[in-house]
Design a protein around this nucleic acid. Structure first.
Lengths: 205, 205
DNA sequence: CGCTAATCTAGAACAAGTTTCAGACTTGAT
DNA sequence: ATCAAGTCTGAAACTTGTTCTAGATTAGCG
């Protein structure tokens, strides 16, 4: 597969560039933690990461790109954390619900950061598709991990996609104050039933 | 229930005010149809609806408010259209999937308008909660209509919420070019299986 | 009709995302 | 060490959402 402009691998960064990138992502997460999406102001990110505004834009071509990259960063971290303590439920549906609720609790500890990342993710337009896709793949991996599957059927993949849809949208309703934590939990548990329905070992699946 | 500031009924508008409001919503939908969220620029909306910018902001306190109101408007219209030709499937799950696919086809005819409305809806923050809630209630009504239910159980309501989550999020993935029309259809059909699972007439529900 | 409060208009001003540019600094190759 | 190409900086400019102001218009009322 030839590398087109949306797939090309980033040319390797020098040490200083890598350091700049990390400073930027750190500043972004820090500002987001304080006041959510609106508090991440590009001039402030540039200033607190000691980088010129133009440079910030060279690394991340828009605020949404920056916040989606911040999310990638946090997700990787979370996937690592989740791996250490695998979910304890017996049935796959239980394990997935447990995993998502654990992630949800982590987000509740930094609601502003969650706000910034999730809003950026759903507001992203086509120019951010590759990055958003990457986040989606990572999320899929987390869910499949929890299910204990390495070789899902197309039906199961569809169920996983629906779970991801529900996860994102439920987060948004919670973040905008239209749903309680309890309601998010119920919705997650409800959608996880699809895992049972699409389990090929089930007779009626 | 006392009317607080978020619930208070709007004082009745004069005829000219009603006309202004309609002109604004019309201009908003028109610009959105051309170029989506970005093409709805407040100065342009004001100009093409022959209203001063300040007046536009008096009617709709932000661009997101305006677009969510535009969505309310379109949804009402769609609910009316859908009522005329009720879905033909036998099982509730089929009828809901059919209804949503019909709505989806309508959106495909105006993808830019869909983009503007859906992006506004998911980007809306707490200040728009009442309006977004209204849209959500309207969507719930459409789905319950299709199910043929007037008295849903809490479990069924949860399934409906999950269907709405999937609907919004699947639309977003389609609008941002990350999912095909076929994939949206599959996701809708998949999530609609929850209707069977939560049907109280089923033994294992 | 004539008054008062509310509403509307035009336009300036402000805020934050984004772009641009000239000049200084790094990097990599020779 | 030196040169060319690429990168970074600081600052200004531009765009679009939002706010503000002063004056004109309108609506409701006696």
């Amino acid at each position: 597969m030839p590398a087109d402009e949306t797939t090309q691998r980033p040319s390797p960064l020098t040490e200083r560039q890598e350091a700049r990138r990390r400073r930027i992502l750190h500043a972004s997460a820090q500002l987001a933690s304080r006041g959510g999406f609106d508090a991440v102001q590009m001039r402030e990110v540039a200033e607190s990461s000691q980088v010129a505004l133009g440079t910030l834009y060279r690394y991340f071509p828009s605020k949404v790109h920056l916040l989606v990259a911040t999310m990638q960063d946090q997700l990787e971290h979370m996937h690592g954390t989740l791996r250490k303590k695998p979910p304890s439920g017996e049935r796959p549906a239980e394990r997935v619900a447990e995993t998502l609720m654990r992630a949800f609790r982590a987000l509740q500890r930094e609601p502003h950061l969650a706000d910034a990342m999730v809003r950026a993710l759903t507001f992203a337009d086509r120019s951010v598709s590759p990055e958003v896709d990457q986040v989606s793949r990572q999320t899929t991996a987390i869910i499949l991990d929890a299910m204990g599957l390495t070789d899902p059927t197309p039906e199961q993949l569809s169920a996983v996609r629906v779970i991801e849809h529900t996860w994102h949208s439920a987060l948004i309703t919670w973040l905008s104050g239209r749903a309680s934590i309890a309601q998010v939990r119920i919705d997650i548990e409800t959608v996880c039933r699809l895992i049972d329905v699409t389990d090929p070992r089930r007779p009626s699946g």
